[in-house]
Simulated assay, not measured.
Amino acid sequence: METSASRPVVARVPLVLAVAVLIVAVDQATKFWAESALPGRAPVPVLGEFLQLRLLYNPGAAFSIGAGATWIFTIITAVAVVVLIWFAVKPAPRVQTLALSLLLGGAVTHLLDRLFREPGFARGHVVDFIDYNGWFVGNVADIALFCGAVLLLIPALFGGDQAKKADDEN
């Protein structure tokens, strides 16, 4: 019986690529929509004030931390993409591979923003448009990054050995 951890890299690459490319495509498409539909508008309520659509350009990291160091975030994101690719194709349970694929898709799309959006190469601002009750404003890539991080943490917090054993039996 072949386990998910013993499958060759070639068997994992299609899943990693499919998930990452899907995240990049959906994120970039929704950012394109937000940039065409939301400029100059008041926040658009989706679930009252709890969830609104509001266009922002974020030069920093989460919560606009480090807004003056955009080029540093570009380098960090590029390194993260390389590391995530390396880990995503290594033998791992399917849940971990999926989690790393979500993280990879989110990181790649943020890297694309940093590289190719205004104000210039490696200094681009990330397009954010989903306002969560005024706590923070994010995008689809942020949702993928959050979900990927949670998927990595759940097995570690709640019996990773049993989750791995169940995955190996499939």
Rank of each mutant, 00 (worst) to 15 (best):
A92Y: 01
A69T: 07
F63N: 12
L100V: 00
G68K: 08
A67H: 05
S36E: 06
S64A: 12
P39R: 12
L38K: 01
A62L: 13
P45I: 13
V81F: 01
G48S: 08
A78C: 10
V44W: 08
L51F: 15
G40K: 07
F50R: 04
V83I: 05
V46T: 11
F50Y: 14
V44P: 05
W71E: 10
P39S: 10
N58T: 10
P59S: 08
N58P: 04
L100Q: 01
V46K: 15
F63A: 14
F63W: 14
A67Q: 11
W71V: 06
E35L: 02
P45S: 04
I65V: 14
W86I: 12
P59A: 07
T70M: 14
Y57K: 09
V46G: 13
Y57M: 03
K90P: 13
L53F: 09
V81G: 00
G48T: 03
W86Q: 12
S64D: 12
P59V: 06
V44G: 09
T77N: 09
R54Y: 15
E49T: 15
I76F: 14
A88G: 02
W33Q: 03
R54T: 08
V83F: 05
A37I: 01
F32H: 03
L56R: 04
T70V: 07
A78L: 03
W33R: 01
G68E: 07
P43Y: 07
S64Y: 10
F63T: 10
A78I: 01
P93T: 15
A88F: 00
L47V: 10
G40W: 02
F87V: 03
Q52K: 12
A80Y: 08
S64F: 05
F32R: 01
S101Q: 01
L56H: 06
W33I: 07
V81Q: 00
L51D: 15
A37N: 02
V79N: 04
F63G: 14
L47D: 15
P39Q: 05
T97G: 08
P43H: 09
W33L: 06
N58L: 10
A67P: 14
S64P: 14
Q96R: 15
K31F: 05
S36V: 06
P91C: 15
G40C: 03
E35R: 01
P93F: 15
A69F: 03
V81A: 00
T74R: 06
L53H: 02
G40I: 10
A37F: 03
L56K: 13
V89I: 12
A99Y: 00
T97A: 12
S101V: 02
L98S: 04
P91Y: 07
N58A: 11
W71G: 11
A42Q: 03
A34G: 01
P43F: 15
V44Y: 03
V82G: 02
T70C: 14
S64G: 04
V95G: 14
K31Y: 01
